[in-house]
């Protein structure tokens, strides 16, 4: 099968959807001739013109607000926020408006809106360009939250998000853009709310999102002679396919949830809650979460690396859990 980069998979998803539906338009900063800071919109300005590829001033609140108003009145906006850190300047529009207007109108209003953004540390850009903020959005009723880890998922999930009638926060990872993966031609979707077992195993369930899926798979490979690790990628955090995770825990009896965001109040805790409620009797050891340190991300490379789980940390933690009785 053909292998393409994550960034190109996203580009293809958007292009195909824009051809299919003339009401889809793009809005964001530096998305014109440059094609977005990371090139997700490469050549789309040339193909679709400025009516449908709307490059804006640095005005995040107005970007999301424009998308909200347009979505309420029949268009299907895809708003880009260059770094998830910058969405903070538009939070009223995201949290009080996009997430709530459909509900508050008693269903009169639909909000077919996608906010595409990217997150994560790893590029030495310090604390205002490196956060993992997915938990904020998971915590806000009215939003869907998508976090693709592969080019295949990126394409299939973005198409589903665009076709969805609720606001979707679509969170990419900067370090995944240039990773390749197989992406078949033709028309297909990855539905929202369907986790995927990325690797089967029997001794422990590792739930990982986004970039951490790759770290988990690497750790599983290193451990393969001694411990059989099952790796599950929820792919979407809202809606959450907890059933697949529960089924896995019933098989393995152990679970580790892995994310880059700080563990305090992170989404790991939500998995622990649900697993504890639904599969307590199957657990052979306490559910564990491995995530980022509780600190803003520092600039200096060795410090930044120390803030997020590395493959060796995962290997160590899995060994520790499997030893526990």
């Amino acid at each position: 099968m053909r292998e393409i980069r994550y960034v190109d998979a996203l580009n293809k998803a958007i292009r195909e959807e824009m051809i299919r539906d003339g009401n889809i338009f793009l809005i964001g900063e530096d998305i014109g001739p440059l094609g977005g800071t990371f090139g997700v919109y490469k050549d789309l300005f040339r193909e679709f013109g400025e009516k449908r590829v709307r490059q804006t001033p640095i005005s995040e609140s107005a970007i999301i607000g424009t998308a909200v108003g347009a979505a309420m009145t029949g268009l299907r906006p895809i708003a880009e926020i260059m770094y998830i850190d910058f969405i903070t300047t538009a939070m009223d529009q995201v949290i009080n408006q996009a997430a709530k207007l459909s509900f508050m109108s008693g269903g009169n209003v639909q909000m077919p809106l996608v906010i595409r953004t990217q997150q994560g540390p790893g590029t030495r850009e310090a604390a205002q360009h490196s956060q993992n903020l997915e938990a904020w959005f998971v915590h806000t009723p009215g939003l869907k939250v998508v976090m693709p880890s592969s080019p295949y998922d990126a394409k299939g999930l973005l198409k589903s998000s665009i076709r969805d009638n609720s606001p979707v926060i679509f969170i990419e990872h900067r370090l995944l853009y240039f990773k390749k993966g197989s992406v078949p031609e033709g028309e297909w979707l990855v539905p929202l709310g369907e986790a995927e077992v990325k690797k089967e195993g029997n001794d422990i369930t590792v739930v990982a999102t986004s970039l951490m899926v790759h770290q988990a798979l690497e750790a599983a490979e290193i451990l393969s002679k001694e411990i059989s690790v099952e790796v599950i990628d929820p792919r979407t955090l809202v809606p959450l396919d907890i059933e697949k995770v529960i089924a896995s825990v019933k098989k393995t009896g152990r679970i580790l949830i892995l994310h880059e965001a700080p563990v305090r109040g992170g989404i790991g805790a939500e998995f622990v809650r649900q697993v504890t409620e639904k599969a307590f009797d199957y657990l052979d050891s306490p559910p564990r979460v491995l995530g980022g340190l509780n600190t803003p991300i520092p600039f200096s490379p060795p410090l930044e690396n120390a803030c997020v789980p590395q493959v060796e940390d995962i290997v160590g933690m899995v060994k520790e859990i499997v030893k526990e009785k």
Binding site: R124, A126, A127, Q128, P296, P298, P302, L303
Partner: peptide
């Protein structure tokens, strides 16, 4: 350069 002797002890970097 992300060094301990920097203004922010390497915590901030060029933009901070």
């Amino acid at each position: 350069q992300g060094k301990e002797t920097g203004y922010s002890r390497g915590r901030g970097g060029s933009m901070h």
